[in-house]
Design a protein around this nucleic acid. Structure first.
Lengths: 201, 201
DNA sequence: AATTCTGCCTAACATTTGTTAGGTCTCGTC
DNA sequence: GACGAGACCTAACAAATGTTAGGCAGAATT
Protein backbone atom coordinates (compact mmCIF):
# COMPACT_ATOMS: atom_id res chain seq x y z
CA UNK A 1 0.00 0.00 0.00
CA UNK A 2 1.73 3.13 -1.20
CA UNK A 3 1.85 5.93 1.33
CA UNK A 4 -0.46 8.81 0.48
CA UNK A 5 2.15 11.31 1.65
CA UNK A 6 4.61 10.08 -0.95
CA UNK A 7 2.95 12.03 -3.71
CA UNK A 8 5.61 11.26 -6.28
CA UNK A 9 8.17 13.98 -5.98
CA UNK A 10 8.74 15.70 -9.29
CA UNK A 11 12.28 14.53 -9.94
CA UNK A 12 13.32 11.53 -7.95
CA UNK A 13 16.58 11.29 -9.82
CA UNK A 14 17.58 14.68 -8.44
CA UNK A 15 16.50 13.73 -4.95
CA UNK A 16 18.72 10.67 -5.08
CA UNK A 17 21.65 12.79 -6.18
CA UNK A 18 20.99 15.33 -3.43
CA UNK A 19 20.80 12.65 -0.77
CA UNK A 20 23.90 10.92 -2.05
CA UNK A 21 25.82 14.20 -2.23
CA UNK A 22 24.96 15.00 1.35
CA UNK A 23 26.00 11.60 2.60
CA UNK A 24 29.17 11.57 0.53
CA UNK A 25 30.11 14.99 1.88
CA UNK A 26 29.36 13.94 5.43
CA UNK A 27 30.62 10.38 5.65
CA UNK A 28 32.82 9.71 2.64
CA UNK A 29 32.54 7.25 -0.20
CA UNK A 30 32.75 3.86 1.45
CA UNK A 31 30.54 4.82 4.37
CA UNK A 32 27.84 6.05 2.03
CA UNK A 33 25.53 3.13 1.30
CA UNK A 34 22.81 2.78 -1.26
CA UNK A 35 20.36 1.99 1.52
CA UNK A 36 21.33 5.17 3.30
CA UNK A 37 20.84 7.16 0.12
CA UNK A 38 17.51 5.47 -0.47
CA UNK A 39 16.31 6.25 3.05
CA UNK A 40 17.23 9.90 2.69
CA UNK A 41 15.68 10.17 -0.76
CA UNK A 42 12.50 8.40 0.24
CA UNK A 43 12.59 5.16 -1.70
CA UNK A 44 14.03 1.68 -1.45
CA UNK A 45 17.59 0.72 -2.27
CA UNK A 46 16.76 -1.47 -5.23
CA UNK A 47 14.74 1.29 -6.87
CA UNK A 48 17.84 3.40 -7.27
CA UNK A 49 18.85 1.12 -10.11
CA UNK A 50 15.93 2.38 -12.12
CA UNK A 51 17.66 5.78 -12.25
CA UNK A 52 21.35 4.85 -12.12
CA UNK A 53 23.30 1.84 -13.28
CA UNK A 54 25.57 1.70 -10.22
CA UNK A 55 26.82 3.48 -7.12
CA UNK A 56 29.92 4.55 -8.98
CA UNK A 57 27.89 6.33 -11.64
CA UNK A 58 26.12 8.32 -8.95
CA UNK A 59 29.44 9.18 -7.39
CA UNK A 60 31.00 10.34 -10.66
CA UNK A 61 28.04 12.55 -11.42
CA UNK A 62 28.20 14.18 -7.99
CA UNK A 63 31.95 14.70 -8.02
CA UNK A 64 31.79 16.35 -11.42
CA UNK A 65 28.81 18.50 -10.58
CA UNK A 66 30.51 19.65 -7.39
CA UNK A 67 33.64 20.84 -9.15
CA UNK A 68 31.55 22.40 -11.90
CA UNK A 69 29.63 24.42 -9.33
CA UNK A 70 32.74 25.93 -7.74
CA UNK A 71 34.14 26.38 -11.20
CA UNK A 72 31.27 28.47 -12.47
CA UNK A 73 30.97 30.34 -9.18
CA UNK A 74 34.59 31.47 -9.42
CA UNK A 75 34.33 32.16 -13.13
CA UNK A 76 31.21 34.25 -12.69
CA UNK A 77 32.69 36.22 -9.80
CA UNK A 78 35.76 37.00 -11.88
CA UNK A 79 33.87 38.18 -14.96
CA UNK A 80 31.57 40.23 -12.73
CA UNK A 81 34.51 41.87 -11.03
CA UNK A 82 36.65 42.23 -14.14
CA UNK A 83 34.55 45.11 -15.42
CA UNK A 84 35.83 48.00 -13.38
CA UNK A 85 37.72 46.66 -10.43
CA UNK A 86 41.38 46.30 -9.60
CA UNK A 87 43.08 42.97 -9.96
CA UNK A 88 43.36 42.75 -6.19
CA UNK A 89 39.60 42.96 -5.98
CA UNK A 90 39.24 40.35 -8.68
CA UNK A 91 41.29 37.93 -6.67
CA UNK A 92 39.35 38.79 -3.57
CA UNK A 93 36.11 38.10 -5.38
CA UNK A 94 37.39 34.79 -6.69
CA UNK A 95 38.49 33.68 -3.23
CA UNK A 96 35.20 34.68 -1.69
CA UNK A 97 33.20 32.95 -4.41
CA UNK A 98 35.19 29.78 -3.97
CA UNK A 99 34.68 29.68 -0.22
CA UNK A 100 31.03 30.56 -0.47
CA UNK A 101 30.40 27.85 -3.03
CA UNK A 102 32.16 25.42 -0.73
CA UNK A 103 30.40 26.11 2.52
CA UNK A 104 27.03 27.44 1.52
CA UNK A 105 25.50 26.31 -1.65
CA UNK A 106 25.64 22.58 -1.85
CA UNK A 107 26.88 19.27 -0.63
CA UNK A 108 28.12 18.50 -4.12
CA UNK A 109 31.18 20.68 -3.77
CA UNK A 110 32.00 19.31 -0.35
CA UNK A 111 31.52 15.79 -1.60
CA UNK A 112 33.78 16.28 -4.59
CA UNK A 113 36.56 17.69 -2.44
CA UNK A 114 36.39 15.24 0.41
CA UNK A 115 35.76 12.05 -1.55
CA UNK A 116 38.07 12.47 -4.49
CA UNK A 117 41.14 11.01 -2.85
CA UNK A 118 39.25 8.11 -1.29
CA UNK A 119 37.59 6.91 -4.45
CA UNK A 120 38.68 4.19 -6.86
CA UNK A 121 40.94 4.99 -9.78
CA UNK A 122 38.14 4.21 -12.18
CA UNK A 123 35.94 6.92 -10.72
CA UNK A 124 38.79 9.39 -10.57
CA UNK A 125 39.48 9.00 -14.27
CA UNK A 126 35.95 10.12 -15.06
CA UNK A 127 36.49 13.38 -13.20
CA UNK A 128 39.87 14.41 -14.55
CA UNK A 129 38.58 16.70 -17.31
CA UNK A 130 36.35 18.78 -15.07
CA UNK A 131 39.08 19.15 -12.51
CA UNK A 132 41.64 20.19 -15.07
CA UNK A 133 39.27 22.85 -16.32
CA UNK A 134 38.88 24.12 -12.78
CA UNK A 135 42.63 24.34 -12.32
CA UNK A 136 42.85 26.29 -15.55
CA UNK A 137 40.32 28.83 -14.30
CA UNK A 138 42.27 29.55 -11.15
CA UNK A 139 45.59 29.73 -12.96
CA UNK A 140 44.03 32.16 -15.42
CA UNK A 141 42.90 34.35 -12.55
CA UNK A 142 46.38 34.37 -11.10
CA UNK A 143 47.92 35.12 -14.49
CA UNK A 144 45.60 38.06 -14.99
CA UNK A 145 46.44 39.40 -11.56
CA UNK A 146 50.11 38.94 -12.29
CA UNK A 147 49.82 40.71 -15.65
CA UNK A 148 48.52 43.84 -13.94
CA UNK A 149 51.55 43.90 -11.71
CA UNK A 150 49.71 43.14 -8.49
CA UNK A 151 51.89 40.05 -8.26
CA UNK A 152 55.64 40.12 -8.90
CA UNK A 153 56.64 38.82 -12.33
CA UNK A 154 58.61 35.99 -10.80
CA UNK A 155 55.89 34.88 -8.41
CA UNK A 156 55.36 31.13 -8.30
CA UNK A 157 51.78 30.87 -9.51
CA UNK A 158 51.66 27.14 -8.95
CA UNK A 159 52.53 27.57 -5.29
CA UNK A 160 50.05 30.41 -4.91
CA UNK A 161 47.42 28.24 -6.51
CA UNK A 162 48.15 25.49 -4.03
CA UNK A 163 48.06 27.90 -1.11
CA UNK A 164 44.69 29.31 -2.09
CA UNK A 165 43.17 25.95 -2.94
CA UNK A 166 44.55 24.32 0.17
CA UNK A 167 43.46 27.05 2.51
CA UNK A 168 39.92 27.26 1.21
CA UNK A 169 39.33 23.56 0.79
CA UNK A 170 40.79 22.85 4.18
CA UNK A 171 38.02 24.83 5.84
CA UNK A 172 35.79 21.85 5.16
CA UNK A 173 37.78 19.87 7.68
CA UNK A 174 37.11 22.45 10.38
CA UNK A 175 33.48 22.01 11.28
CA UNK A 176 33.64 24.52 14.10
CA UNK A 177 34.41 27.53 11.91
CA UNK A 178 31.96 30.38 12.28
CA UNK A 179 30.83 32.67 9.52
CA UNK A 180 32.87 35.53 10.96
CA UNK A 181 36.02 33.45 10.98
CA UNK A 182 35.50 32.55 7.35
CA UNK A 183 35.17 36.20 6.40
CA UNK A 184 38.37 36.97 8.32
CA UNK A 185 40.08 34.14 6.48
CA UNK A 186 39.09 35.56 3.11
CA UNK A 187 40.44 38.97 4.05
CA UNK A 188 43.68 37.64 5.47
CA UNK A 189 44.30 35.33 2.55
CA UNK A 190 43.61 37.81 -0.22
CA UNK A 191 45.55 40.62 1.43
CA UNK A 192 48.39 38.18 2.01
CA UNK A 193 48.60 37.33 -1.68
CA UNK A 194 48.15 40.72 -3.27
CA UNK A 195 47.96 43.06 -0.30
CA UNK A 196 51.54 44.21 0.36
CA UNK A 197 52.60 44.28 -3.27
CA UNK A 198 49.47 46.06 -4.37
CA UNK A 199 50.26 48.74 -1.81
CA UNK A 200 53.73 49.21 -3.25
CA UNK A 201 52.76 49.46 -6.88
CA UNK B 1 52.02 -26.03 9.74
CA UNK B 2 53.65 -22.72 10.53
CA UNK B 3 55.81 -21.37 7.76
CA UNK B 4 59.53 -21.58 8.47
CA UNK B 5 60.07 -18.17 6.87
CA UNK B 6 57.81 -16.54 9.41
CA UNK B 7 60.51 -16.43 12.02
CA UNK B 8 58.47 -14.43 14.48
CA UNK B 9 59.08 -10.79 13.73
CA UNK B 10 60.33 -8.96 16.80
CA UNK B 11 57.32 -6.72 17.39
CA UNK B 12 54.20 -7.84 15.58
CA UNK B 13 52.16 -5.19 17.31
CA UNK B 14 54.21 -2.49 15.62
CA UNK B 15 53.95 -4.24 12.26
CA UNK B 16 50.19 -4.24 12.55
CA UNK B 17 50.18 -0.54 13.33
CA UNK B 18 52.51 0.19 10.43
CA UNK B 19 50.39 -1.77 8.00
CA UNK B 20 47.19 -0.19 9.27
CA UNK B 21 48.67 3.30 9.10
CA UNK B 22 49.69 2.79 5.51
CA UNK B 23 46.29 1.49 4.48
CA UNK B 24 44.45 4.20 6.40
CA UNK B 25 46.58 6.87 4.76
CA UNK B 26 46.06 5.36 1.34
CA UNK B 27 42.45 4.22 1.34
CA UNK B 28 40.70 5.85 4.29
CA UNK B 29 39.02 4.38 7.33
CA UNK B 30 36.12 2.38 5.94
CA UNK B 31 38.10 0.97 3.06
CA UNK B 32 40.78 -0.27 5.41
CA UNK B 33 39.86 -3.79 6.46
CA UNK B 34 41.28 -5.98 9.16
CA UNK B 35 42.01 -8.65 6.58
CA UNK B 36 43.92 -6.13 4.52
CA UNK B 37 45.91 -5.07 7.55
CA UNK B 38 46.57 -8.69 8.44
CA UNK B 39 47.81 -9.50 4.94
CA UNK B 40 50.19 -6.56 4.96
CA UNK B 41 51.45 -7.35 8.44
CA UNK B 42 51.91 -11.05 7.75
CA UNK B 43 49.30 -12.72 9.93
CA UNK B 44 45.64 -13.65 9.89
CA UNK B 45 42.79 -11.30 10.61
CA UNK B 46 41.64 -13.01 13.78
CA UNK B 47 45.10 -12.83 15.28
CA UNK B 48 44.96 -9.07 15.34
CA UNK B 49 42.63 -9.37 18.32
CA UNK B 50 45.44 -10.77 20.37
CA UNK B 51 47.16 -7.36 20.13
CA UNK B 52 44.20 -4.97 19.89
CA UNK B 53 40.64 -5.12 21.20
CA UNK B 54 39.09 -3.64 18.05
CA UNK B 55 39.67 -1.86 14.76
CA UNK B 56 38.74 1.42 16.39
CA UNK B 57 41.47 1.08 19.00
CA UNK B 58 44.03 0.62 16.25
CA UNK B 59 42.67 3.66 14.47
CA UNK B 60 42.79 5.85 17.56
CA UNK B 61 46.36 4.87 18.28
CA UNK B 62 47.45 5.66 14.74
CA UNK B 63 45.62 8.98 14.56
CA UNK B 64 47.17 10.12 17.81
CA UNK B 65 50.64 8.94 16.94
CA UNK B 66 50.42 10.73 13.61
CA UNK B 67 49.56 14.07 15.13
CA UNK B 68 52.17 13.55 17.83
CA UNK B 69 54.83 13.02 15.18
CA UNK B 70 54.10 16.27 13.35
CA UNK B 71 53.77 17.94 16.70
CA UNK B 72 57.20 17.00 17.91
CA UNK B 73 58.75 17.62 14.51
CA UNK B 74 57.49 21.20 14.51
CA UNK B 75 58.34 21.71 18.16
CA UNK B 76 61.87 20.42 17.67
CA UNK B 77 62.43 22.55 14.59
CA UNK B 78 61.30 25.62 16.49
CA UNK B 79 63.51 25.06 19.52
CA UNK B 80 66.44 24.28 17.24
CA UNK B 81 65.91 27.47 15.29
CA UNK B 82 65.06 29.62 18.29
CA UNK B 83 68.65 29.77 19.41
CA UNK B 84 70.12 32.40 17.10
CA UNK B 85 67.78 32.84 14.19
CA UNK B 86 65.27 35.47 13.23
CA UNK B 87 61.60 34.87 13.78
CA UNK B 88 61.11 34.66 10.03
CA UNK B 89 63.55 31.78 9.96
CA UNK B 90 61.79 30.15 12.87
CA UNK B 91 58.53 30.19 10.98
CA UNK B 92 60.26 28.88 7.89
CA UNK B 93 61.72 26.04 9.89
CA UNK B 94 58.35 25.19 11.40
CA UNK B 95 56.69 25.13 8.01
CA UNK B 96 59.38 22.98 6.53
CA UNK B 97 59.32 20.57 9.45
CA UNK B 98 55.56 20.23 9.18
CA UNK B 99 55.64 19.46 5.48
CA UNK B 100 58.55 17.07 5.81
CA UNK B 101 56.86 15.17 8.60
CA UNK B 102 53.78 14.93 6.44
CA UNK B 103 55.26 13.68 3.22
CA UNK B 104 58.38 11.86 4.25
CA UNK B 105 58.52 10.24 7.58
CA UNK B 106 55.48 8.11 8.07
CA UNK B 107 52.05 7.03 7.05
CA UNK B 108 50.81 7.85 10.54
CA UNK B 109 50.71 11.56 9.88
CA UNK B 110 48.97 11.14 6.55
CA UNK B 111 46.48 8.76 8.08
CA UNK B 112 45.66 11.11 10.93
CA UNK B 113 45.02 13.99 8.56
CA UNK B 114 43.07 12.17 5.93
CA UNK B 115 40.96 9.93 8.15
CA UNK B 116 40.02 12.27 10.96
CA UNK B 117 36.96 13.71 9.32
CA UNK B 118 35.72 10.35 8.07
CA UNK B 119 35.88 8.57 11.38
CA UNK B 120 33.15 8.03 13.96
CA UNK B 121 32.54 10.55 16.71
CA UNK B 122 33.68 8.03 19.27
CA UNK B 123 37.11 7.77 17.69
CA UNK B 124 37.37 11.51 17.22
CA UNK B 125 36.80 12.13 20.91
CA UNK B 126 39.83 10.05 21.76
CA UNK B 127 42.04 12.25 19.63
CA UNK B 128 40.90 15.67 20.75
CA UNK B 129 43.60 16.23 23.38
CA UNK B 130 46.52 15.51 21.08
CA UNK B 131 45.07 17.70 18.39
CA UNK B 132 44.47 20.56 20.74
CA UNK B 133 48.07 20.34 21.87
CA UNK B 134 49.20 20.51 18.26
CA UNK B 135 47.10 23.60 17.63
CA UNK B 136 48.65 25.20 20.69
CA UNK B 137 52.16 24.59 19.35
CA UNK B 138 51.43 26.32 16.08
CA UNK B 139 49.66 29.22 17.73
CA UNK B 140 52.64 29.64 20.04
CA UNK B 141 54.95 29.79 17.05
CA UNK B 142 52.81 32.49 15.47
CA UNK B 143 52.61 34.42 18.73
CA UNK B 144 56.38 34.37 19.08
CA UNK B 145 56.81 35.57 15.53
CA UNK B 146 54.29 38.29 16.16
CA UNK B 147 56.00 39.36 19.37
CA UNK B 148 59.22 40.06 17.48
CA UNK B 149 57.35 42.34 15.13
CA UNK B 150 57.71 40.15 12.04
CA UNK B 151 53.93 40.04 11.98
CA UNK B 152 51.77 43.12 12.47
CA UNK B 153 50.26 43.43 15.94
CA UNK B 154 46.75 43.19 14.57
CA UNK B 155 47.41 40.18 12.37
CA UNK B 156 44.72 37.50 12.60
CA UNK B 157 46.72 34.60 13.95
CA UNK B 158 43.80 32.23 13.70
CA UNK B 159 43.47 32.89 9.99
CA UNK B 160 47.19 32.57 9.46
CA UNK B 161 47.11 29.31 11.35
CA UNK B 162 44.37 28.05 9.06
CA UNK B 163 46.24 29.16 5.97
CA UNK B 164 49.43 27.41 6.98
CA UNK B 165 47.67 24.26 8.14
CA UNK B 166 45.43 24.14 5.12
CA UNK B 167 48.17 24.70 2.61
CA UNK B 168 50.52 22.11 4.05
CA UNK B 169 47.94 19.46 4.77
CA UNK B 170 46.34 19.93 1.39
CA UNK B 171 49.54 18.76 -0.30
CA UNK B 172 48.53 15.25 0.70
CA UNK B 173 45.63 15.45 -1.72
CA UNK B 174 47.98 16.24 -4.60
CA UNK B 175 49.79 13.02 -5.30
CA UNK B 176 51.57 14.43 -8.31
CA UNK B 177 53.60 17.02 -6.40
CA UNK B 178 57.34 16.73 -6.91
CA UNK B 179 59.97 17.41 -4.29
CA UNK B 180 60.96 20.62 -6.02
CA UNK B 181 57.40 21.88 -6.01
CA UNK B 182 57.13 21.23 -2.30
CA UNK B 183 60.29 23.22 -1.65
CA UNK B 184 58.90 26.06 -3.73
CA UNK B 185 55.71 25.90 -1.76
CA UNK B 186 57.56 26.23 1.55
CA UNK B 187 59.45 29.27 0.27
CA UNK B 188 56.38 30.95 -1.18
CA UNK B 189 54.28 30.31 1.89
CA UNK B 190 56.79 31.44 4.49
CA UNK B 191 57.80 34.53 2.53
CA UNK B 192 54.14 35.30 2.04
CA UNK B 193 53.48 35.26 5.77
CA UNK B 194 56.53 37.07 7.11
CA UNK B 195 58.38 38.08 3.97
CA UNK B 196 57.16 41.58 3.14
CA UNK B 197 56.74 42.71 6.72
CA UNK B 198 60.05 41.31 7.80
CA UNK B 199 61.68 43.30 5.03
CA UNK B 200 60.14 46.47 6.36
CA UNK B 201 61.15 46.07 9.95
C1' DA C 1 58.48 -33.82 33.07
C1' DA C 2 54.20 -31.44 33.63
C1' DT C 3 52.01 -27.23 33.14
C1' DT C 4 51.11 -22.72 31.91
C1' DC C 5 51.57 -18.89 28.91
C1' DT C 6 52.49 -16.69 24.39
C1' DG C 7 51.37 -15.95 19.89
C1' DC C 8 49.14 -17.22 16.23
C1' DC C 9 45.66 -20.01 13.29
C1' DT C 10 41.15 -21.95 11.67
C1' DA C 11 36.48 -21.60 11.16
C1' DA C 12 32.67 -19.75 11.92
C1' DC C 13 29.05 -15.92 13.35
C1' DA C 14 25.90 -12.14 12.24
C1' DT C 15 25.60 -8.08 9.69
C1' DT C 16 26.11 -5.15 5.89
C1' DT C 17 27.33 -4.29 1.29
C1' DG C 18 26.21 -3.59 -4.04
C1' DT C 19 23.35 -5.65 -7.12
C1' DT C 20 19.58 -8.32 -9.49
C1' DA C 21 15.10 -10.53 -10.71
C1' DG C 22 10.51 -10.43 -10.59
C1' DG C 23 6.33 -8.43 -8.96
C1' DT C 24 2.88 -4.53 -8.29
C1' DC C 25 0.54 -0.29 -8.68
C1' DT C 26 -0.80 3.68 -11.41
C1' DC C 27 -1.26 6.21 -15.25
C1' DG C 28 -2.10 7.53 -20.14
C1' DT C 29 -3.34 5.57 -24.66
C1' DC C 30 -5.86 2.87 -27.87
C1' DG D 1 -11.88 -1.81 -20.77
C1' DA D 2 -7.43 -3.79 -22.38
C1' DC D 3 -2.77 -2.72 -22.56
C1' DG D 4 1.71 -1.18 -22.00
C1' DA D 5 5.01 1.55 -20.01
C1' DG D 6 6.81 4.23 -16.15
C1' DA D 7 8.18 4.18 -11.33
C1' DC D 8 8.66 1.81 -7.48
C1' DC D 9 8.81 -2.38 -4.14
C1' DT D 10 10.03 -7.02 -2.28
C1' DA D 11 13.12 -10.48 -1.59
C1' DA D 12 16.83 -12.46 -2.40
C1' DC D 13 21.92 -13.16 -3.95
C1' DA D 14 27.05 -13.47 -3.17
C1' DA D 15 30.66 -11.22 -1.26
C1' DA D 16 32.89 -8.76 2.34
C1' DT D 17 32.96 -6.93 7.00
C1' DG D 18 34.21 -6.81 12.31
C1' DT D 19 34.36 -10.01 15.68
C1' DT D 20 34.51 -14.37 18.48
C1' DA D 21 35.48 -19.19 20.06
C1' DG D 22 38.35 -22.85 20.20
C1' DG D 23 42.60 -25.15 18.89
C1' DC D 24 47.69 -25.86 18.48
C1' DA D 25 52.59 -25.45 18.61
C1' DG D 26 56.55 -23.91 21.02
C1' DA D 27 58.78 -21.36 24.84
C1' DA D 28 58.88 -20.42 29.65
C1' DT D 29 58.04 -21.73 34.17
C1' DT D 30 57.55 -24.82 37.94
Amino acid sequence: MPDASAIQQPDMRRRILDAAAFLLAENGYKATTLRGIADAAGLKAGSIYYHFPSKDHITVEILNEGVAQVSSAVKEAVTDASAEKSSAEILHAAIEAHLTALTEHSSYTRASIRCFSMVSEGIRKETVEVRRAFDAIWLDVLRVVQATGALPADADLKSLHLIILGTLNWTLECHGATEKEKRALVETLSSLVVGPNAAIL
